[in-house]
Amino acid sequence: MNLTISPCPNDTFAYHALVHGLVSGAPQVTAHYADVDVTNNLALTADLDVVKVSYAALPWLLDRYQLLPCGGALGRGCGPLVVTASEVTSLEGLRVAVPGDRTTAYLLMRLWAASGGGTPASVEVVPFAAIMPAVAAGRYDAGLVIHEARFTFERHGLRALVDLGEWWERDTGLPIPLGAILMRRGFGERDRVAGWVRASVEAAFRDPAASQNYVLAHAQEMEPAVVAQHIALYVNDFTLDLGAEGYGAVEALLGRAAKEGLVPALPAGALS
Rank of each mutant, 00 (worst) to 15 (best):
W196Q: 06
M109I: 04
D237V: 04
Y214Q: 10
P267D: 02
W60Q: 13
D171T: 02
P80D: 11
E202G: 03
F187M: 11
N2W: 05
P208H: 12
E92D: 15
V23C: 08
L62I: 05
P267T: 01
R198Y: 12
P267E: 10
R95C: 07
L18I: 06
H20R: 13
L254K: 03
S122G: 15
W60I: 01
T172A: 05
M1I: 04
D141W: 02
L62G: 14
L74I: 04
M109D: 09
L158W: 07
L48T: 01
Y106M: 06
V215A: 07
L94A: 07
P99R: 03
G269P: 09
V263P: 06
V145K: 08
P120G: 09
V23E: 10
L174Y: 05
M1E: 08
L108C: 01
T152G: 01
G165Y: 07
T45S: 15
K259N: 01
L233G: 03
A268G: 09
A203D: 13
P224G: 00
V123T: 12
Y234D: 12
A34W: 12
A129N: 10
D11E: 13
V162W: 00
H147Q: 05
L164M: 05
M183R: 09
R184Y: 03
A114I: 03
L107N: 10
L262A: 11
V235R: 02
M222Y: 03
G165V: 04
G195K: 04
R110M: 09
M183H: 02
A113Y: 04
C8W: 07
L178A: 05
E87I: 00
M1T: 08
A121M: 10
V215L: 08
A210S: 13
V98G: 10
A56S: 12
I146E: 10
V197L: 06
R110T: 02
D237Y: 01
G186K: 04
E202S: 12
E87Q: 12
A270I: 01
E251Q: 15
R170F: 02
A136H: 08
F187A: 14
V38D: 13
T103S: 15
S211K: 00
E124I: 09
M1W: 02
L240H: 05
Q220L: 09
A203W: 02
Y15N: 13
T84V: 00
H218Q: 04
A34P: 04
P27V: 00
A258D: 14
T12I: 10
L178P: 10
A232Y: 05
Y247S: 03
L91F: 00
D35C: 07
A142H: 05
A270L: 07
